[in-house]
Amino acid sequence: MTEYYKHESAIVDDGALIGSDSRVWHFTHVCGGAKIGSGVSLGQNVFVGNKVTIGDKCKIQNNVSVYDNVHLEAEVFCGPSMVFTNVYNPRSGIERKSEYRNTLVKRGATLGANCTIVCGVTVGEYSFIGAGAVVNADVKPYALMVGVPAKQIGWMSEYGEQLDLSLTGDATVNCPHTNATYQLIDSVLSKVES
């Protein structure tokens, strides 16, 4: 008996590792080499490749394909129909599996609905990618990114609240919801641990 829930229409190939309290919903396919943590939710019509790791408490909404060489740390949110890639310059008639680029999405990041994460980038912890954005370069921790191509327009707290800070300079601000303190030094934002 498994310790995770799997809908009867889902396919989980032999060898896949799925942690306890995870949920695999309708018409989802998990390949045999996948490593999925505890408390993960894989929505309807999700695909998870062989060379994929998904950390604890990630939420992957409907119609998302997590292709080989994509790695999600804990508590990543993948909005409905967002897109990952793993080949930078694909052609149908040319095999490029040896050219897969690694994509790393760090802890707590949010990837909005219909956004695209071009392969080979690192998306920083607790960053927030707006709906429909196209990310083609590394994203700083806590950065708020929107547009095509994505540009930083602000900063976000771990709670998901926009912080009242400029993009550059040195400053300190508190999250309007949790009152946690964040410090901007040399255009890098970090949470001040109390």
Rank of each mutant, 00 (worst) to 15 (best):
V64C: 05
A34T: 04
K59F: 15
N62Y: 11
V46P: 00
C31T: 09
Q61T: 00
V64P: 03
N50V: 07
S65Y: 06
G55F: 07
I60P: 01
C31I: 03
K59Q: 14
D56H: 15
C31S: 01
G37F: 05
G37R: 08
I36D: 10
V48E: 03
T53P: 00
Q44A: 06
I54Q: 07
N50T: 12
K59M: 04
N63K: 08
Q61F: 13
S38V: 01
G32S: 06
K59V: 10
G32K: 06
I54W: 07
F47Y: 15
T53D: 06
V46W: 07
C58M: 10
G55R: 09
N62H: 15
S38D: 06
K51Y: 00
L42C: 11
V48L: 01
Q61M: 05
N62F: 14
N63L: 15
A34D: 11
Q44F: 12
K57G: 00
S65D: 11
S41I: 08
C31D: 11
N45F: 07
T53N: 08
Q44K: 10
N50Q: 14
A34V: 12
V52A: 01
S65R: 10
K59Y: 15
V48I: 14
K57E: 14
G49I: 06
S41Q: 09
V66F: 00
C31L: 08
A34G: 07
V66G: 04
N62P: 04
V64K: 12
Q44W: 11
Q61G: 01
N62D: 14
G49A: 13
V66A: 04
G49Y: 02
K51N: 09
N62V: 01
K59E: 12
G37N: 00
N50I: 08
V40G: 03
K51M: 10
Q61D: 09
K57N: 14
G32Q: 09
V46L: 07
G43F: 04
S65A: 13
V66D: 11
K35H: 08
C31V: 01
I60R: 02
G39S: 01
D56E: 15
G37A: 00
N62T: 14
G37Y: 15
N45A: 03
A34L: 12
S38T: 09
G39T: 07
N62R: 02
S41C: 06
Q61I: 00
I54D: 06
A34H: 03
K59C: 00
V66I: 15
I54N: 02
G32P: 00
K57S: 08
G55P: 06
V46D: 03
V64G: 02
G33S: 10
F47K: 11
G32L: 02
S38H: 04
I36C: 03
V46A: 02
L42W: 14
N50G: 05
G49W: 00
T53I: 04
T53L: 04
G33W: 07
V66C: 03
K57W: 12
I54G: 03
G39C: 01
F47T: 07
V64R: 10
G39L: 13
S65G: 11
V40W: 09
G39R: 04
V52I: 10
G39W: 05
D56A: 09
G43E: 04
S41Y: 15
K57T: 04
G33R: 02
G49M: 13
N62C: 09
N63H: 12
G37T: 08
C31N: 05
G49D: 05
A34K: 13
N62Q: 15
V64S: 02
G55K: 06
Q44V: 12
A34Q: 13
Q61P: 02
S41W: 14
N63R: 13
G55I: 08
